[in-house]
Design a protein around this nucleic acid. Structure first.
Lengths: 171, 171
DNA sequence: TTGATTGCAAAGCATTTGCATGCTA
DNA sequence: TAGCATGCAAATGCTTTGCAATCAA
């Protein structure tokens, strides 16, 4: 009886509650997609989750995974994140600490970090301009330690990154 | 002979230099697109710029505007920015101070801001994880002062925002 | 039974690409 | 003249939507 299992239960309950409150319905697909989502740890795209689901039930369609991820987001269980490669990724959101992302533009490695100082400064910037801050979004793009070394050794590395940041877009 | 005019000249020169160095060619379309881009002040999408160009020369195609904006970005004259509505916007980049964006999710208003403290903290976060920071991206999403007031008065405002942030995606 | 849900195919968007034609250098 | 640039149409990649069939409540 670990904390994780308790948490697991609770997330299912949150989902059920959301479904009831919104007048929606329980389905085998939704349960399966939630279960598999909860078993993951990485940031995954709808495509990624689709294939994981597909392995267990090949009758589930792409559309349902898309729609269910949206549903999970509405229920507060998932959070959409974008890393600049044009896809939308999802990460666990329920009972998770807020964090931002640092992305290696070479290998796609994603590091989560949290800086209370930056958070506080964002609040004060918003206040300064009269904004009521609802969300914020922050990415740091650069080269991770390994890729800095690799770049020093050879220029061409064969490995394909999972997340390819095509154009480095700074906002 | 204002500073703006001097700057204008210089940006054209930068463009010419970039074109020469890259072995590319001067064309009437590129000159026109650059000129019109330089006359703008807002963040504009390729679509936006296309229509501005179209007014002066309707023979210029979408594709050329896309390609030229990429070229301007390569030349350091433009910077791609994304606000979360799925489109790519461009802003002036040459001789511009670095800044981040605060976006009103109701009316789409974009406020540019700069916080040296946040910049410094980003550097130290990167350093802490061994990252070599190349770019960063930061958005603050919320309600601007006007929209907070409007929300207090009525819930439905008829105005269509120029930038519609469909799903609030926090990264 | 009623109406939400599903999965397929098709449509949407923003963006990119193939290719014949046009035009700079 | 060589080969980059252009513009059209078609393709792409991700996501959404229409719709008939299915299924939960």
């Amino acid at each position: 009886m670990t904390g994780k299992e308790n948490n697991f239960q609770t997330e299912r309950e949150v989902f059920s509650e959301h479904i009831q409150k919104a007048g929606l319905r329980h389905t085998a697909q939704r349960d399966l997609i939630l279960d598999i989502f909860l078993q993951t740890d990485e940031h995954l795209s709808s495509e990624d989750l689709y294939w994981l689901v597909h392995k267990q039930d090949s009758s589930v369609g792409h559309t349902t995974v898309y729609r269910t991820l949206k549903l999970l987001t509405d229920a507060g269980l998932a959070r959409e994140v974008r890393f600049g490669d044009g896809k939308t990724y999802y990460e666990h959101h329920y009972n998770q600490e807020h964090h931002d992302h640092m992305i290696c533009t070479e290998c796609g490695r994603v590091v989560e970090f949290f800086s209370p100082e930056i958070e506080a400064l964002q609040d004060s910037v918003a206040a300064e301009y009269g904004f009521k801050l609802t969300h914020h979004s922050m990415r740091i793009l650069g080269l991770c330690e390994d890729c800095q070394k690799k770049d020093a050794e050879t220029s061409a590395s064969g490995a394909q990154p999972r997340i390819r940041v095509k154009s480095v877009v700074v906002t």
